[in-house]
Design a protein around this nucleic acid. Structure first.
Lengths: 219, 219
DNA sequence: ACCTGAACACCGTTCAAGT
DNA sequence: ACCTGAACACCGTTCAAGT
């Protein structure tokens, strides 16, 4: 087949198809991707620099439906919205997570989300240190929860027999599996704890700020 | 070379060598591993069922130095010890994390650690649901923190120029990189928040328990 | 500019063969 | 039982060649 009148491929189509393969089969390889697109392997390299770039494109697709945060939202609500978006994005494509996690972020849309939350917290009065620590904590939470949804440990599979402590606890607990059960409830709980902790950080920052900057806070 | 008088290889040696390669070069492949051991590739398969088994062996090696938890330790101290052990184990071999995370746990030593914390919390009075939620939260924290140590996002690299909110915050913050800086401090902070939250869960469990079981709690 | 076929240097796994 | 060499079915990437 010679060159078609209109291009068949595009970066977007390639990444979207790869994500679809991940969703359906849990993996994607370059040859299989080419086959699925009805195209030769080497064609892909005219639109995408390699496998890593495809994965990064997938990250971009997944970051797209990130929630808009109202400019006048209180920081607590914004943080909750941000974290849920982050986590939902992963939960929607659990099979993609291992690929994403194995690779450092370079997708601009994803990086922008971090900028948004950073600016937001700074505006709310958090000190630079507190912003960095808060984002790290939220990142830990979302990434951990994403991995939990994407590849729940055998730990949580109730297939195993035996009467180890963990098995007994699982048998007695009434938490269904999946995003709405154990994983989701733990996420919401942990998120609320972090937000509470952040409120403490903020209170401390305000105290220190007014004290060192203006000196009106009597020693 | 014919069969040597004493076996050259062992599961342990293979896994230990593979872990060493990960630590040094950030990756290991079966051919390179064989070469490093001065052995042919197919020899490995007499001691290990495949690459996945080697990775699982590595998980076992990393779980080995888990801290002993004194039987009479209060649950708060036990949880903190457990989480730090978990996280330190990963932090000691950051390059191994992506390989471990891509694969479901089957290593018995690792599974045992989950049993220990489950039994411990149950003994402290946590309800089954609270145990499951607590372990999930701690797991999220440790895994997220491990990934953070193992493959810190470009987000935290101060190489980038420009004046995005995140860059500004990083420039103004005074948190060095690495386990003792940003990552470690956020871990400790988040851990303390989770422990506080767990105390709430426990208090609620005790209330509900005494109420439903004995009925002495007046409505 | 866009797609192709062929080649390259890998990878993990298997298996009959040796002692 | 333990190690070997050769083969297998893959993988991601490159590149000269076509239009």
């Amino acid at each position: 087949m010679p060159r078609p009148s209109a291009p068949i491929l595009s970066r977007e189509l390639i990444c979207r198809t790869a994500l679809g393969m991940l969703d359906r089969t849990g993996r994607f390889t370059v040859p299989e991707l080419a086959q699925r697109l009805g195209v030769s392997v080497s064609s892909l390299y005219h639109h995408v620099s390699g496998r890593a770039a495809i994965v990064e494109g997938i990250r971009g697709l997944m970051a797209a439906p990130f929630a808009e945060i109202p400019a006048d939202a209180p920081w607590e609500a914004a943080v909750v919205l941000w974290a849920r978006s982050y986590r939902d994005a992963f939960a929607a494509h659990p099979a993609a997570i291992p690929a994403l996690v194995a690779q450092t972020i370079s997708d601009p849309a994803t990086l922008e989300q971090y900028d948004r939350i950073a600016g937001l917290l700074r505006g709310a009065g958090f000190s630079p240190n507190s912003v960095v620590l808060s984002i790290t904590m939220l990142d830990n939470l979302c990434l951990g929860a994403a991995l939990d949804v994407g590849a729940p440990s055998v730990i949580w599979e109730d297939t195993g027999r035996g009467d180890s402590p963990l098995r007994q606890v699982l048998a007695q607990a009434s938490l269904p599996d999946g995003p709405d059960g154990r994983s989701g409830q733990a996420f919401e709980l942990e998120l609320s704890y972090i937000v509470s902790g952040m409120a403490d950080l903020l209170a401390r920052d305000r105290l220190a700020g007014s004290w060192t900057a203006d000196g009106w806070f009597p020693s």
